[in-house]
């Protein structure tokens, strides 16, 4: 049992009881490698910052939101027009979601190109990839909640995609929608996923990801010499994080204030889908791929092939540390770099095409 000293102030009083100084000592000893690609480390922390913004604004929104088709739209309109700063909180939530996915993608590709997934950091990659898909899950489940025309039809089209998967397609659509059509059950189901299930899974995975980061420290790329001494996490690296968070906050506030989130007309399930409807930018690669492929390939509907491709690509992304055995042996693996460059080019081209042609 530690010796208790006579406290001099509130800080000492608190420190005697919760031992904050031991946490500070731990963070002072933790070092971030100093090398020429250290800049890319910042995006993990920035993703955490935007996730925190999502939690904070999401909690505020859920106070007024009503997850029922007859009142969801009205509750969102109420948030935007009657709740003090409600329009700003909703705009911050919407724009922060976009920035979060953007930052997570930059983090994903920087880890991929620097081969930071190589042994012994495979589990960090697996948990990171799961977190990326959870972020896309958040975006997908949150999109229906305002219950306006775009939200309704985008979710209707999106939940239709798995239908062509052999044997389990219909079942998957039914699970996503809570029935055959987008209705009350779908809204309740996606709402529960968005505010309870996905946040719990994400929080647990972020904790796991961070613990692994403590265990293995940040990766140093192959053939790169780290300079000594490293960057002490506290206070030196925390200042770098703080600058990136302030820059992120500036960007977020500018977007939310200059282009507040809009609310379309209330969804009418009996109306036909509006012309030129397209999903958010992070789903445009899939959207454009579905538009580009011919209706049938080898007598099989194109959706089946695209679904198959999505499953293969997802599995491939997940298994990168296993497939790239050269990187784990500390050797260069230019094939994986080339695959990454091709994937980036394809994504950018598909997104540009979707914006230019719809």
């Amino acid at each position: 049992m530690g010796e208790l000293k006579q406290g001099r102030g509130l800080g000492d009083w608190l420190n005697e009881r919760v031992r904050l100084s031991s946490l500070v000592d731990f963070l002072r000893q933790k070092e971030v490698p100093r090398q020429k690609h250290s800049f890319w480390y910042i995006f993990g922390g920035l993703a955490f910052f935007f996730f925190s913004i999502q939690v904070l604004t999401g909690v505020l929104l859920v106070i007024y939101y009503s997850p029922r088709p007859d009142s969801a739209y009205e509750s969102v309109r109420f948030i935007g027009s009657q709740v003090p700063f409600g329009w700003l909180i909703r705009s911050l939530h919407g724009w922060s979601a976009n920035l979060l996915i953007g930052v997570v993608l930059i983090h994903f590709f920087s880890v991929f190109f620097l081969k930071a997934y190589r042994r012994p950091r495979e589990m960090m990659w697996f948990s990171g990839v799961l977190l990326l898909f959870l972020m896309l899950g958040f975006a997908f489940t949150g999109f229906l909640l305002p219950w306006d025309t775009k939200a309704y039809f985008a979710t209707k089209i999106g939940t239709e995609i798995p239908r062509t998967i052999p044997l389990i397609g219909d079942w998957m659509v039914s699970i996503l929608r809570g029935g055959e059509y987008i209705a009350e059950e779908s809204l309740k189901r996606l709402f529960a996923l968005h505010v309870v299930i996905l946040p719990l899974l994400t929080s647990a995975l972020i904790l796991f990801h961070l613990i692994l980061n403590q265990v293995h420290a940040s990766s140093i790329p192959l053939r790169i010499e780290a300079r000594q001494p490293g960057i002490p996490f506290y206070p030196n690296y925390l200042f770098r994080d703080a600058i990136s968070w302030l820059v992120g906050l500036t960007l977020l506030l500018s977007l939310a204030l200059l282009w507040p989130l809009q609310l379309g007309l209330k969804a009418d399930p009996f109306a036909s889908a509006p012309v030129g409807i397209r999903p958010e930018w992070y789903f445009l690669t899939l959207f454009e791929t579905l538009r580009l492929v011919p209706a049938q390939i080898l007598g099989v509907a194109s959706e089946v092939w695209v679904n198959l491709a999505v499953m293969v690509v997802t599995g491939g992304i997940f298994l990168v540390p296993i497939l790239d055995r050269k990187a784990s042996r500390q050797q260069a693996s230019p094939i994986f770099t080339a695959i990454g460059v091709a994937a980036c080019l394809y994504m950018v081209t598909a997104i540009a095409l979707a914006y230019l042609t719809t």
Partner: peptide, 30 residues
Amino acid sequence: MLVILGVVIAVMIALVYFRMKEVDEDAGIS
């Protein structure tokens, strides 16, 4: 409003940056 916010955040970034430079010098990593 955006201009005021921009100035406030720019000052905050500058303060954090100069403090970071100080602690980097102390740690011998500048």
